[in-house]
Amino acid sequence: MNNRQARNFAIGATAVSALVFLALTLDSHRQFGKLTNADQITPQVTHGKDVWHKYNCINCHTLLGEGAYYAPDLTKITQHRGEAYLQAYMRDPAQFYDEKKHRRLMPKQDLSDQEITDLIAFLDWVSKIDNQGWPPRPILVTGSFVPGADTIGSHATGEESAPSAARPVTAEDDPRAQGEHVFRTAVPACNACHSTAPGADMAGPTLAGLATRAAEILTSDSYTGSAKDVEGYIRESIVNPSAHLIPGKMYSANGTSFMPTGYDKSLTQEQLDHLAAYLASLK
């Protein structure tokens, strides 16, 4: 190989690669609209994006996995936390996290209500972008090990003879086992905010000892809901989170619980039964 051939190789390689790259870029432009639901980029979403930029959020957080690595990824945050929670959180993060305990705290940003609402609209738009199903497993903000972390239980297929903990649950399994499955597969997943470990309160209170606690609540004077028994109370808490409020600024404001609503629609009666059966077993 002489000098000229080497130069032609460099030029040729660059030209071909650049051409292919440009062609694919054009094709991507054809698809951006559909993949990102561009028709849903309302003025509100656009303003929310400006808020995201203005407050330099990306130099602590990641969004779509891009940014700094100092604070949690927010790609799917609106699927894990309800709007009321996010509103309250953005007003004052110190209500939710303790810098002594977590060693990091988000500084209060002094956003206006409008900015907060639009920011949430933007994050909600981001959460619906078709991004090849990333993250492969929900990225949680807080919480310790959760039962859902087992790969075998949720992914293995076709091994009917395996013991129940080593294969996906089926309709023949105990309702409580099926309920545990719903607990981590419902959308949003219950375990994104509730642990089942004693004392491990996350965005929602721990559900350890729930059955015992529910029985106490039902007989107390402060109870305002209409449930008669423990499973009824659990069912009510799922479909109508504000029926009875657990005290705490981090759980509710103005009589509205921060827990997302809509489980009455997204879960079937049967799934609710299983869930209630499972949670009632947490004595």
């Binding site: 604070a71 949690p72 990824d73 996290y97 977590h102 060693r103 990091r104 993250p135 492969p136 497993r137 929900p138 990225i139 949680l140 903000v141 807080t142 919480g143 310790s144 090990f145 959760v146 859902g148 972390a149 996350m202």
Partner: peptide, 16 residues
Amino acid sequence: ERIMGMGYLDAQLKIQ
């Protein structure tokens, strides 16, 4: 955090 499913903040505490 990513594979076992521990929360971000808790995982960061473990890698101090």
